[in-house]
Amino acid sequence: MPQLALSPVTSRTLFGAALLVLACAFVSPPVLAAKKGEGKSTFKRQSNRIKIQNTRSSSEETSVERDKRLSRECRGRPNSGACLGYARP
């Protein structure tokens, strides 16, 4: 295969053209993506999700009752697991 002999000016020109092509390839997608949405009006899409509020059943203990029960049951036990913060040494 014969090699092409390029002058320094030609090689710099080709190198500059290659850099320009690469720069355009990396810059163009974000610029084009920004321009696509300019003509359209933006609106907030409503969610079709239903919000469910959790209600406690009447048979469940309240948080105050739970605190009292844990402090009573965790006396003398290691301060870990369910007794974390309720155990007294």
Rank of each mutant, 00 (worst) to 15 (best):
M1F: 13
P2A: 13
P2M: 13
Q3E: 14
Q3M: 13
L4E: 12
A5W: 11
A5C: 12
L6H: 03
S7I: 06
P8I: 07
V9W: 08
V9F: 11
S11Y: 11
S11E: 10
R12F: 05
T13H: 08
T13M: 10
L14Y: 08
L14N: 06
F15S: 10
G16V: 00
G16C: 06
G16Y: 06
G16N: 03
A17L: 12
A18N: 02
A18V: 07
A18D: 07
A18T: 07
L19W: 04
L20K: 09
L20Q: 02
V21N: 02
L22S: 00
A23N: 01
A23L: 06
A23R: 05
A23T: 00
C24D: 08
C24I: 05
A25T: 03
A25F: 10
F26D: 01
F26L: 02
F26S: 06
V27W: 06
V27E: 01
S28T: 11
P29R: 00
P29N: 05
P29A: 03
P29I: 00
P30C: 02
V31K: 01
A33T: 04
A33F: 02
A34R: 04
A34S: 05
K35Y: 07
K36V: 10
G37R: 08
E38D: 13
E38L: 10
E38F: 01
E38M: 09
E38Y: 03
G39W: 03
G39V: 03
K40D: 12
K40A: 15
K40G: 08
F43R: 10
K44P: 01
R45G: 01
R45K: 12
Q46Y: 03
Q46L: 03
S47M: 00
S47G: 00
S47W: 04
S47H: 02
S47Q: 04
N48D: 05
R49E: 09
R49Q: 11
I50Y: 07
I50W: 05
I50S: 05
K51S: 13
K51H: 11
I52S: 10
I52N: 12
Q53A: 15
N54C: 15
T55H: 14
T55W: 12
R56L: 15
S57F: 08
S57M: 14
S57H: 08
S58M: 14
S58Y: 10
S59C: 14
S59E: 12
E60T: 09
E60R: 09
E60Q: 14
E60Y: 03
E60D: 14
E61L: 15
E61C: 13
E61M: 15
E61A: 15
S63K: 15
E65R: 13
E65K: 15
D67A: 13
D67V: 13
D67L: 07
K68P: 01
R69C: 11
R69L: 12
L70I: 02
L70D: 02
S71V: 11
S71F: 09
S71D: 09
R72M: 12
R72G: 07
E73C: 02
R75N: 09
R75M: 08
R75L: 11
R75H: 09
R75S: 09
R77I: 04
P78Q: 01
P78C: 00
N79M: 09
N79E: 08
S80M: 14
S80E: 14
A82E: 12
C83F: 06
G85K: 01
G85P: 02
A87M: 08
P89Y: 07
P89T: 02
